[in-house]
Structure formats: structure tokens, C-alpha cells
């Protein structure tokens, strides 16, 4: 019981701090925190696969990108409505996730990863070359939709956008947390521990993986929509595979199988990039890479796993 109340105290402290951030932080850092939340959501979605199901997706940029482009499509072709953008983005991400899930879950281990990578690159090429719809290399630019409920609407300010993003990320986190502890989530973790055993006790592993990939892809798409709304543009380089690679790095840095760990990983990664690129300019990836390797060697459970162990002692 003590552990449980400790968890909720921590939860509300972090939530409070993130909620207060736009009121106290200067403009640059305010934007920075909002962006970390969005990338954190993307990393969290990937954790469902890496941390809980034990399969590594190298194709999360596709889900993220399709969420983005779906939202942009809805905003440009129909109306600048936030909920319409959400609906279009989620539909696009879900379609792609279903497609990728169907094929990739036939494969195991590294072959699964390669399959997701290949599919994300296919979608990258489609988006890059289908200029009439996607704007090709230049991407698409659009106006930010206002925050609206039926009968009321107001243009986003940096603060309200931050709170909007924060509430969506928090709700998604709570939902995913519930899923990971549901009977379904326990099956995913059984698959991670031992796939053949899980099959032998009566679980159709492939179907569970398909649902896991779709769930993960949907949340990644949500992150893409938020990014599009925040930045008012979409571009093909967000669908490129280095985004997928960064997502895996966020997970390893922060701690896989914890949901919040990957958000922390994203925060640390962006802070490192911010801090180091001042001294190393475009070579900042060299020290970042070294820090990453040191984490893998000395903190194999990631930063959150490390912190948890320190707190438990």
C-alpha cells in the first residue's frame, strides 16, 4: 500500500510540475517541454512493443508520420478543426499499423525489426514522391486549428497548447498503464519472456502481437498529430528511419518496460542535444553516442530503472 500511495504522490508531483511549466518557464524552454512530451508519447508507444512484448520496432516513424500527414490532410482538405485532425491522423496511423502488423508479426526477433524498418521506408518513399498529396520534399504547411469544443473555440496560446498536449499524453499514459496490467498486457509480457511457452499454454501469439503493434502504432500516430498541430507543418524527414532509431534510443536511455522511462529518455536526449550542440555544433551526436553506450553498459535498466533501485534501497 505504501508503494502505491508513493506512486500517486510522485505522479501528481510530476504532473503538477509539468502543468506549471508554461507559467514559469521562458518562451524557448516552454516550447521545449511541450516538444519533449510529444516525443515522449512516441517513445512510450514504442515501449509497448520493446518493453512489454519484447519485439523491437524500427518503424515507428511510419506511424508517427502517418498520424502527422493524416492530420495535415484533414486540416488542409476539410476544415481547420482540431478534432477532425485527430480523427484523420488516427485513421491514417491505424490503417498503416494494421498493414504493418499483419506482415511483420509473421516474423520473429530481428526479422520483425527489419520488416518494420522496410515498411517505414516504403511509406517514406511514397510520401517523398507523391507530391500532389503530400507536398513531396517540402512537406505541407497549414494554419494551427483552434482549441474547440462545440459552441466554444479559442486560438491556442503556447500555454493552452502545452496543457492540451499534457492532458493527452497523461490520459494515454494512464490508459496504456492499465492495458499493461490487464490480462491482455500480462500475455504480452509472457510473450516477451518466452514466446514458444506462451503459445503452448494456448495463446495465439500472432494475434496478440498484431493488437500490440496496432495499439502502439495508434499512440505513435497520436504523437504525430500533436507534433503537426504544434508546429503547423509536416515534412517527410519525420517519416525517415532515423526518427525510429531515436525512439529506440529514448527507450534504452530511459528504461524499457516502464512507460515513463522512455519519456524521461526523450527528455534527457533532447537536453543533451541542446547542451552539447552548443559546444560540439553538428558533431553533438558523438558525445551523445558515447553517453548512450555508457548507459547501455552501466545502466542496462535505463535511467528510470537505476533511479528506482536507488529509491528502493
Amino acid at each position: 500500500m505504501a508503494r502505491r500511495s508513493g506512486y500517486w504522490i510522485g505522479f501528481f508531483l510530476v504532473l503538477g510540475a509539468l502543468g506549471a511549466a508554461p507559467l514559469v518557464l521562458p518562451e524557448f524552454w516552454r516550447r521545449f517541454v511541450t516538444e519533449i512530451l510529444i516525443w515522449g508519447l512516441l517513445a512510450m508507444s514504442s515501449d509497448i512493443l520493446i518493453g512489454y512484448t519484447g519485439v523491437v520496432s524500427f518503424g515507428h516513424s511510419a506511424f508517427f508520420g502517418l498520424g502527422m500527414y493524416g492530420a495535415a490532410f484533414g486540416l488542409l482538405r476539410f476544415r481547420p478543426n482540431l478534432w477532425l485532425a485527430l480523427a484523420f491522423g488516427l485513421l491514417a496511423a491505424a490503417t498503416v499499423a494494421a498493414f504493418v502488423a499483419y506482415f511483420s508479426t509473421r516474423l520473429r526477433d530481428i526479422y520483425f525489426s527489419i520488416c518494420t524498418l522496410v515498411f517505414s521506408q516504403i511509406f517514406y518513399v511514397i510520401i517523398f514522391t507523391w507530391t500532389e498529396v503530400t507536398g513531396g520534399e517540402n512537406g505541407l504547411v497549414f494554419r494551427q486549428p483552434p482549441l474547440s469544443v462545440p459552441g466554444w473555440q479559442r486560438a491556442f496560446t503556447p500555454a493552452t497548447l502545452h496543457w492540451f498536449v499534457l492532458s493527452i499524453v497523461t490520459l494515454t499514459y494512464l490508459a496504456l498503464r492499465q492495458v499493461t496490467r490487464s490480462p491482455f498486457g500480462m500475455v504480452l509480457q509472457a510473450i516477451r519472456e518466452n514466446e514458444s511457452r506462451t503459445m503452448a499454454i494456448g495463446y495465439d501469439v500472432k494475434r496478440y502481437k498484431i493488437v500490440a503493434v496496432m495499439l502502439s502504432g495508434l499512440c505513435a500516430g497520436l504523437a504525430g498529430i500533436l507534433y503537426a498541430v504544434q508546429n503547423r507543418f509536416v515534412a517527410p524527414n519525420f517519416v525517415f528511419f532515423d526518427v525510429s532509431g531515436e525512439v529506440v534510443i529514448f527507450n534504452v536511455l530511459g528504461g524499457m518496460g516502464t512507460l515513463v522511462g522512455p519519456v524521461l529518455g526523450a527528455a534527457v536526449f533532447f537536453l543533451l542535444r541542446e547542451g552539447l550542440s552548443r559546444y560540439f555544433t553538428e558533431y553533438y551526436l558523438i558525445p551523445v553516442g558515447m553517453i548512450f553506450m555508457l548507459t547501455v553498459i552501466f545502466l542496462p535498466q535505463g535511467l528510470l530503472g537505476f533511479l528506482r533501485r536507488q529509491l528502493n534501497q
Binding site: R181, P183, M186
Partner: peptide
């Protein structure tokens, strides 16, 4: 317990996503 529980669960309702196991 989890090893045995997840095996027993396969005969009940493994597809529930919203309630705690």
C-alpha cells in the same frame, strides 16, 4: 505465480484490456 497464473488465464478471459489482472 505469474507463470502458472498466465497459463490458467488462457482458459478464462485473456482479451480483457481495461481491468487489472
Amino acid at each position: 505465480l505469474e507463470n502458472v497464473r498466465v497459463a490458467a488465464q488462457s482458459r478464462h478471459h485473456p482479451w480483457r484490456l481495461h481491468r487489472h489482472y
